[in-house]
Design a protein around this nucleic acid. Structure first.
Length: 450
RNA sequence: GGUCCGGUGGCAGAGUGGUGAUGCAGCGGACUGCAAAUCCGCGAAUGUGGGUUCGAUUCCCGCCCGGACCUCCA
């Protein structure tokens, strides 16, 4: 078994992955704030860390993968105020939509998916610890984390508190001791969601939930913490400060992993820029599996520029993989991941390299190598690809199969009569509906083209 | 301004101090009534200027270009 190497954002180096407990790997990944449909940028970390979780499960006996749901946030409050919909309704619906969309992308659910609002008690306990140890202070109904109290602040994001202060582009609240101090707890108005606390009725700041929930489900220290690159600062820097100050002997996450941003026309896709494509928008253009492949065709740490051309290419690439599997329809997935695929994944999750190795397997499978087909299926399983029946991939998604078969039979009769004009007319008519015919030795088959 | 990341064939995208993966697209051929698919073959790339080295796309420095972050963000 090859050694798994992963790039650690904290050390900025590729490191051999050595779990704290080789019998139980623990990973936390930041999940969505549920106020709107997921966009492709939200989907990238879900897919990337889904692959990592699948790989870890193949390498270690037990994996606990935690991904939170942020269901208390001022963006949610703003949405409720703007639309009149109740907060609970917004978060419940958006969470369900998120689950449905991620399932379309072939992402397995995490082992634990804690919601922030279900862990307010843990957050309050954590904040009390921080106050007791001098790392936080209450002021005007708020509780703030004292950046000054944590010598390692800025380590993860690679900046000094002085730089952070100089770069601050937001007005500094008067109750902050230091401009870099951030909110752990803030007061709520009667209309805003709130919980009773030692500091009055209020709600948590953004970062404390992840510290609280990773603590609850993974302990004071765990193996991997993941998320998007844009979360490094302030979210992960602050989360790390909170957790390390609350549990000075814990160590918190040992390995930090951050996926690169998703761009559209060279610009970052984000809700604030308004240039985002929701997963649903893109699912209208291509199957979820093609979107998933598109996301895995680029190494997770690099920026990925989304284009519809690339989406079409991903779909054609899947056509070839499924053709290879069709050559050996009853070949089961082999128990072992083919060595070249596993080797690529163990090199910091090099999914493009793994896909290249899969193309070699597909070539062999197309040549009749059943073992290669079985290996291709196994490789697909680690990447969360190729789980469909090839027949469903090529011919699913419509209820016109009988009509198509009838047209094919008619064309066959015309061909037998050597009436090629008639036969070609039928083929052209089908092609205009996106149906491509393939005349083979065993008869005519058809598929839907992208 | 500060910090960080990146610039590879037409496009996408890996790896590598010693003849530059893979896919998509294109071109030629086989197969086909014609196609499609498949197979065989072909052309095609390391931003720029220096340095280190027997040798640099890879390591170092400058420059140009692009992107991210600097308290909404995956």
């Amino acid at each position: 078994m090859p050694t798994l190497f992963l790039h650690n954002s904290l050390t900025r180096k590729r490191e051999a992955f050595v779990p704290l407990d080789p019998t139980h790997v623990r990973m936390y990944v930041c999940g969505p704030t549920v106020y709107d449909l997921a966009h492709l940028g939200n989907a990238r970390p879900v897919v990337v860390f889904d692959v990592l979780a699948r790989l870890l499960r193949r390498l270690y006996p037990r994996v606990t993968y935690v991904r939170n749901i942020t269901d208390v946030d001022d963006k949610i409050n703003a949405r409720a105020a703007a639309t009149g919909e109740a907060i609970g309704a917004i978060t419940a619906r958006t969470t369900a939509d998120f689950h449905a969309d991620m399932a379309e992308l072939g992402a397995l659910p995490p082992d634990v998916e804690p919601a922030a609002t279900q862990h307010i008690a843990e957050m309050i306990a954590l904040i009390e610890r921080l106050i007791a140890s001098g790392h936080a202070y209450a002021a005007e109904g708020h509780v703030l984390f004292s950046v000054h109290s944590f010598a390692d602040y800025g380590h993860l994001s690679g900046r000094s508190p002085r730089e952070l202060l100089a770069g601050a582009r937001v007005e500094v609240a008067p109750y902050k001791r230091d401009a870099g101090d951030f909110v752990l707890w803030k007061p709520s108005t009667p209309e805003q969601p709130g919980w009773d606390s030692p500091w009055g009725r209020g709600r948590p700041g953004w970062h404390i939930e992840c510290s609280a929930m990773s603590w609850r489900y993974l302990g004071e220290t765990f193996d991997i913490h993941g998320g998007g690159q844009d979360l490094i600062f302030p979210h992960h820097e602050n989360e790390r400060a909170q957790s390390l100050c609350a549990f000075p002997h814990g160590g918190f996450a040992r390995l930090w992993m951050h996926n690169g941003m998703l761009l559209v026309n060279g610009e970052k896709m984000s809700k604030s820029l308004g240039n985002f494509r929701t997963v649903r928008d893109v699912l209208a253009l291509a199957p979820g599996e093609a979107i998933r492949l598109l996301l895995l065709k680029t190494h997770y740490r690099a920026a990925l520029d989304f284009t519809e051309a690339a989406l079409g290419e991903a779909r054609r690439e899947l056509d070839r993989f499924y053709r290879a599997l069709e050559m050996a329809p009853d070949a089961p997935a082999s128990p072992e991941i083919p060595a070249p695929v596993l080797a690529a994944l163990c090199e910091d999750l090099n999914t493009p390299g793994a896909l290249a190795a899969m193309h070699a397997l597909a070539d062999a499978a197309l040549g009749g190598d059943r073992e290669a087909a079985a290996g291709l299926r196994a490789a697909g399983a680690v990447l969360g690809l190729l789980g469909a029946d090839p027949a469903a991939w090529f011919r699913g998604g419509g209820d016109d199969a009988a009509a198509i078969e009838a047209a094919i039979a008619e064309r066959l009769a015309a061909r037998k009569a050597r009436d090629f004009a008639r036969a070609d007319a039928i083929r052209t008519a089908l092609a205009s509906r996106g149906i491509v015919l393939e005349d083979g030795a065993g008869g005519t088959t058809w598929r839907r083209a992208g």
